[in-house]
Design a protein around this nucleic acid. Structure first.
Lengths: 223, 223
DNA sequence: TTATATTAAAATCTCGAAAATCTGAAAAAT
DNA sequence: ATTTTTCAGATTTTCGAGATTTTAATATAA
């Protein structure tokens, strides 16, 4: 019998990696057995995850892993641009040398991983490490922003974004060619150039939206 | 025995009006009795509301109405500015004459109420109507934006904002002098002036933030 | 054959009670 | 007098069984 929060974290982790299939049913009885707890406990946790947007709930029909949705991915990208560029600018204003240091550190780790992957050094195993490192970099970017509401919102969006992106067959074309972009973001942030940071965060996140129908209001602003 | 969703809606309504005190304990047993359902059902609903940010949950210590927090209110205002100005601009681009019509309609109803309140016509009873009408106007403003993710996020933020603001003693000084500002927003939106709409949404929402410590990045952008 | 009705199996939902945990007051020790 | 320990009442959490609903397989009728 594991603690409720442990189970929540474990399920969240699975839902943001490619453990489950999109659209797969999450049956309380199965999870109950695996986690050695009661069905009601599982139900509570699934409700929480549903509010986080990581599982889909239908009355009398149970819980499912959300379907893949290109539209949703575009919307999530849009939200990330909105929240991360705002959070980054606020961090530039509010964060001191400590923030700069941790951002540099996060970038260094990420950069190191990216070089190893680029050199095709055992990519399959490095991919998970890369995703965690990428998450850490982007979280650190906004970490000095004083608004915990913004940071919380961002973490919700980020988790859903990952969930949409995490099918194995999509992983690789997402990772490619990020070294320069992450470098550029770091550079602009350390230079405390707010407009440039906004633009580079935008360009980085929007890199896979080319040719998409939905227009972002922030796109034209960032020219 | 009421349906689970009914109870959820009713509780949500109470939490965003001044039914409960801030910090008040929400005991499952009490709610169970009132809504004539089981404690587990109440628990499920309270977990959902906790993820919505409308109740505060502490492990082994139950559920509470969140405390009043000036900081939180500032952060929520900040998020509203971010989401609403973006949503409004997208609506200007994506909404057609139907959107313009419904925005005009929402404004007309709100405007009518504001005039009655301004004339001190039975204010206490009109206040609740005003808040609903105000909500409708702001929701309509972003309604033509295609991103349901943005709209969902906004509705979460708006509900928390209302909850922070809804103590009876704060209601009145929040309502005062909005006629012109709502007018200005409508005008800019109908003129499809994106920059002006952004600025007016910002000024309107930030009207109670004067002298506050936290700086908004969007503030300097909107000059 | 196709569509509808029937029914059994499977899954979900609700419930009240048992188990675990917390709280605060009274007793004991320093 | 102050701190620590003990303990009982109150609250929260977990649980599994029974009620309800959905699903899917089979039978019946058009």
């Amino acid at each position: 019998m594991e603690s409720e929060n442990k189970i929540y974290q474990e399920l969240k982790k699975r839902l943001t990696t490619d453990t489950y299939d999109h659209g797969q049913k999450l049956r309380a009885e199965v999870l109950r057995e695996e986690f050695e707890c009661s069905a009601s406990t599982v139900r509570e946790i699934l409700f929480r995850l549903a509010s986080d947007g990581l599982v889909h709930f239908l009355d009398q029909k149970g819980f499912r892993v959300p379907e893949l949705s290109p539209t949703k991915l575009i919307e999530l990208t849009h939200m990330r641009i909105l929240l991360e560029s705002e959070g980054a600018v606020l961090s530039i204003r509010q964060g001191g040398v400590g923030w700069e240091a941790s951002l540099t550190a996060a970038h260094h780790k990420l950069s190191h991983l990216e070089k190893r992957i680029h050199a095709r050094e055992d990519p399959t195993e490095l991919v998970d490490l890369w995703f965690n490192s990428e998450k850490e970099f982007h979280q650190t970017l906004i970490s000095a922003c004083s608004s915990s509401t913004l940071k919380h919102m961002h973490s919700l969006i980020y988790a859903q974004f990952r969930q949409q992106l995490m099918k194995a067959d999509r992983k690789f074309d997402f990772i490619s060619n990020n070294i320069k972009q992450h470098n550029d973001i770091l550079e602009a942030a350390l230079a405390a150039d707010e407009a440039l940071t906004r633009k580079r965060v935008h360009d980085h996140l929007a890199r896979h939206l080319t040719g998409q129908t939905a227009t972002l209001a922030s796109e034209s602003d960032a020219e």
